[in-house]
């Protein structure tokens, strides 16, 4: 028996919004420690890794490890039927081929349940090696989304250059060149507005705007985003999900032809 309950459907809606542009379907691996999802996008350029800890749920029970392959388009249809403040419960029997998603209004007067067919997906889990990153940048998630959106107008690629002074995002194309520099913030009143750079050595890497923009669909989950970079390894874009876990996106760099 698997049962996981969250106080607010809005969190699950935001999580789905953060992955459904990259993934058509995905396997949710459930164990007593929580829910894990790891999947590559169709073109195998990026990898999504979602971790939801069991202690972050209002109720969590998972008697036997369970892998639930879900069509994310179908899940989005179901979540559209929830009000943001509804409680949401996911339930499945051991070895079941369906999952039930139930919404309850705060006053318990409306209860709806949706049974969704599960899919058998080819699971290809990738091993992610530990990396000592050259640069780790923490910045407001909305600022990162804005930069990715703005620079995508100028080029398919964005160059991220990080030094101890700051981080520079550049794009160059037919229109010309765009550069956006963010300096490390001195003192800020609000932690969520800070730009913080931890640098071992400077790094310059090039990434596809299309994927960065897809990652920023996770912006509503978190006030801050963390970018971890190292020469010739994938970028890690991480959004914390408060009291519940995190979503990490890995993006392979572009290299000179």
């Amino acid at each position: 028996m698997f049962e996981a309950r969250l106080g607010q459907a809005t969190i699950l809606k935001k999580i789905l919004d953060a992955i459904k542009d990259l993934l058509n379907e995905a396997t949710f691996d459930c164990s007593d420690s929580g829910i894990q999802l790891q999947a590559m996008d169709n073109s195998h350029v990026s990898l999504v890794s979602l971790t939801l800890r069991s202690d972050g749920f209002d109720k969590f029970r998972c008697d036997r490890n369970l892998s639930m392959g879900m069509n994310l388009g179908s899940m989005a249809k179901i979540l559209k039927c929830a009000n943001n403040e509804d409680n949401v419960t996911m339930k499945a029997q051991d070895n079941a081929d369906t999952v039930t998603i139930m919404f309850e209004s705060a006053n318990q007067e409306k209860v709806s349940d949706y049974e969704m067919k599960l899919m058998n997906l080819d699971q290809e889990h990738l091993g992610i090696p530990e990396t000592d990153f050259s640069c780790v940048v923490r910045m407001p998630a909305m600022e990162f989304a804005r930069i990715c959106r703005d620079l995508a107008q100028f080029s398919e690629s964005v160059v991220i250059c990080c030094t101890k002074e700051g981080v520079k995002f550049s794009a160059s194309g037919d229109v010309g060149t765009a550069n956006i520099k963010l300096a490390q913030t001195g003192s800020v009143d609000k932690e969520e507005e800070a730009v913080i750079i931890e640098m071992q050595e400077p790094v310059t890497l090039t990434f596809a705007c299309r994927y960065l923009n897809a990652f920023t669909k996770a912006t509503p989950l978190s006030t801050q985003v963390q970018l971890s970079m190292c020469a010739d390894v994938p970028l890690v874009v991480e959004y914390a999900i408060k009291d519940l876990g995190h979503i990490r996106y890995y993006l392979a760099p572009k290299i000179e032809d």
Binding site: M40, H44, E124, I128, P129, P234, Y250, I255
Partner: peptide
């Protein structure tokens, strides 16, 4: 050139 993520992370 766009590298593939599988050229960095290997199948388990």
């Amino acid at each position: 050139m766009q590298k593939s993520i599988t050229s960095f992370f290997k199948k388990k």
